[in-house]
């Protein structure tokens, strides 16, 4: 019996969300009186994988097959299933990311496991039941879900817990070969296109986010959003109408029909706060709203607010951040 953690890597680094997942997995292992092993996917360096010891991981499996550098659904599923069987994993923990959801859902069938996605807290195991809390109704509610299968798969929502850093602790990195065949790579991507991210901060992974709505008036004014984001080292986002008219790319659109984010700080500039927009951001820890209309519904969901003109307020905020730094 053990806990297996799926760690996503890119350009040699372990993704921030996977450090959280590793922390989560190690804590579940401690609860169950066992150890946590990680299986790394994507492009990783041995040094960075060994550092997963800081999150409480004992051992890291890594298959250096070069075709695993990019996400291949079938190959990743087989790789992780093979590792789960070898390790006798009872609990599998992964990120609630596009990769995590793609492989987690297939694995739940292959391993006959109970799957919970969008999980926001450590499990409760009293009374012999295994219960996880997950977000539901697009951020408007939570549900406690009993995972009744012998095996369980948990996809942890980003930024739901803080990654632990026990400096100096290292994990043993072990070569792993899942004996993948060419057929496992039949759905390999023909091409991978990465988008330019403001200041290099990936929106789904961002701890701080500055977001603009129709109140920004046009794409030519977005430098105001970007300057504040750069000063804060934040990611940038937008409302749906903004991406619908191509002021901003679609991958920045947050909300019910866009991506859901839960950063530590979300700064909404010229966004009214429609319920469908809130669905994508209302689990942010702190929400700041800048809107010239004091009646804008977003103020009801905000922690801090400024009733004012974005064109006046944003430069002041950027200046204040620069001063503080």
């Amino acid at each position: 019996m053990s806990v297996l953690v799926v760690v996503e890597c890119a350009e040699g680094e372990v993704k921030k969300s996977s450090l959280e997942v590793a922390t989560y997995g190690a804590q579940v292992a401690a609860m169950l009186g066992t150890t946590a092993t990680a299986i790394a996917v994507g492009e990783a360096t041995e040094a960075n994988l060994a550092k997963l010891g800081e999150q409480g991981i004992a051992k890291v499996l890594y298959d250096a097959e070069p075709r695993l550098k990019d996400f291949v659904n079938n190959a990743y599923t087989k790789l992780i299933a093979t590792a789960a069987e070898q390790e006798g994993a009872q609990v599998l923990v992964l990120a609630n990311s596009n990769i995590g959801a793609s492989v987690g859902s297939r694995l739940s069938v292959r391993l006959k496991a109970s799957l919970a996605t969008n999980v926001v807290e450590l499990p409760k195991t009293d009374g012999g039941q295994f219960v996880v809390k997950r977000g539901a109704f697009s951020g408007k509610a939570f549900s406690d879900v009993v995972l009744s299968g012998d095996r369980k798969i948990i996809a942890v929502k980003k930024n739901s817990l803080e990654a632990k850093h026990d400096a100096g602790k290292t994990a043993e990195v072990v070569a792993f070969a899942a004996q993948l065949a060419d057929a496992d790579f039949a759905d390999a991507p023909k091409q991978v296109v990465m988008q330019e991210q403001t200041g290099g901060v990936l929106l789904p992974e961002a701890e701080l986010v500055v977001s603009g709505g129709r109140g920004m008036k046009g794409p030519e004014n977005w430098h105001l959003i970007e300057e504040l984001a750069q000063a804060l080292h934040a990611g940038t986002a937008c409302s749906k109408p903004v991406s619908d008219v191509d002021w901003r790319p679609h991958h920045e659109h947050v909300g019910q029909t866009g991506i859901t984010i839960s950063p530590n700080l979300y700064i909404a500039c010229g966004i009214s706060g429609a319920i469908q927009h809130l669905a994508g951001v209302n689990s942010s820890k702190v929400i700041v709203v800048i809107n010239k209309d004091p009646e804008a519904p977003f103020f009801k969901a905000a922690d801090y607010g400024i009733v004012g003109d974005v064109f006046d307020v944003l430069p002041k905020l950027t200046a204040a951040v620069k001063e503080l730094n």
């Binding site: 799957l115 509610a141 549900s143 406690d144 009993v146 299968g149 922690d303 400024i306 004012g308």
Partner: peptide
């Protein structure tokens, strides 16, 4: 089914917004 909902809950209510004067945005 392999999962069962034990209970639903609503998120905790926000404290209410703290407003800062635009003139003093910093």
């Amino acid at each position: 089914a392999r999962t069962q909902v034990a209970e639903f809950a609503l998120p905790p209510k926000k404290q209410g917004v703290k407003l800062i004067d635009a003139a003093n945005a910093g």
